[in-house]
């Protein structure tokens, strides 16, 4: 099972490349993504699909919100918890 840090790096790379379309963007672990206007529900759907493909866990729809997915740190923690 990958460590939380590894999950975070993979998520950072996906978000910068596919969602923000700026691979060199200095995305901080605690940068607000949803509340900061960087990602929206469209992006969350694709992040959830990426998590399913990459880590083999399905996050419930109700977790695709600002409370669980607003920062890379929160996302990685949620994925790690789902992986058990």
């Amino acid at each position: 099972m990958p460590a939380e840090e590894e999950i975070r790096e993979k998520l950072r790379s996906y978000v910068c490349r596919e969602i923000m379309r700026r691979e060199d963007y200095p995305l901080d672990d605690d940068a607000p993504l949803i509340s900061g206007g960087l990602i929206d529900s469209f992006s969350l759907v694709h992040i959830a699909a990426f998590i399913e493909r990459e880590f083999g866990v399905r996050l419930p729809d109700t977790d695709l919100d600002v409370a669980h997915m607003d920062t890379l740190r929160a996302m990685a923690a949620r994925v790690a918890r789902a992986m058990g």
Binding site: E18, I19, S41, F42, S43, V45, H46, A48, A49, F50, E52, R53, D61, T62, L64
Partner: peptide, 20 residues
Amino acid sequence: LRDYVYYPIGRALARRFPRP
């Protein structure tokens, strides 16, 4: 609408077509 219409449709499509 997001949780019961948009997400189920969007996630099913994102699984089938991974490219955003």
